[in-house]
Design a protein around this nucleic acid. Structure first.
Lengths: 142, 142
DNA sequence: AAAATATATTTGTATATACAAATGATAGTC
DNA sequence: GACTATCATTTGTATATACAAATATATTTT
């Protein structure tokens, strides 16, 4: 059944959840070739582009809690794609050579994801939606 | 940091995820007084309004997989709010008296949730967004 | 300088969801 | 009537995320 045909389609709760799950799935497919979840992939790209970046800052950028970031980094460190180096109370995160090598592929995946959803939704259309959703998300911050 | 200020704000992946998480939180607060998660609450309301309804149908309405529905029902059955009665390969789900008693409170929670997000986002505005998101979710069905 | 407070991160545990395999039941086919 | 395919549901297991508590360090106060 289509989301918009559901009796519950008018509720923000279901609609936002259903949309996020579908986008998640599309993203997972797009990053399947690097064997990383979309969140892991974004985080790794972030670290490669900003070596030494700290977990707290990543959480702000990605709108994820510190504990989630910590778990994501842990897995990437286990896979030897990055290292965490504690400096006092903070932690600096650096990509490993193995991590850096992945960058071109990561970028390709990102481009494919973007292309794919633009094909499905339209470029203008999806940009507008994303902007709109971002603004709404901000308003919902209590 | 605001979602729309993130460097990654332009990506459908993060924006839809961040929005869904914020809506989830708001909904959880709205249903806290019945001690049910929003999904459990919706499912229970659905069963009360459609006694005998089958899990497969619920999944279509709520855009959730059979396994998720099964788990949700299991918990509601454990709490004696509904019963599952197998009839051949299908299963019929009925509210218990204890479940039915909850209906007025459930409706109040739903109304509060709706009122709350309409206050924050505007009635027109949020209706438009929900409609838009629903249409986009449909397009993403592969 | 000791105590209290604040900050950054990690860890224990819980929730929501899904995929894939297992189960149970019906229906079609030979 | 037995065999196979199909369908609805449940169960085993995995992922993404969060909250709250723990840890470790830094800063402020007295």
């Amino acid at each position: 059944m289509k989301t918009s045909e559901s009796k519950y389609c008018k509720c923000l709760y279901f609609t936002s959840g259903a949309l996020a799950r579908k986008v998640e799935k599309l993203a997972q497919q797009s990053w399947a070739k690097v064997n990383l979840s979309p969140s892991h992939a974004y985080l790794l790209m972030m670290v490669i582009e900003n070596p030494g970046m700290q977990p707290g800052c990543m959480g702000e950028q990605l709108q994820l809690t510190p504990s989630t970031i910590s778990r994501l980094l842990q897995k990437l460190e286990d896979s030897k794609l990055l290292v965490r180096i504690s400096e006092g109370k903070a932690t600096n995160v650096y990509p490993t050579p193995k991590g850096k090598e992945l960058m071109p592929t990561l970028k390709t995946c990102l481009a494919e994801f973007y292309t794919r959803y633009c094909e499905i939704l339209g470029k203008e259309e999806s940009a507008k939606l994303v902007q709109n959703m971002g603004q709404v998300a901000d308003k919902l911050d209590v």
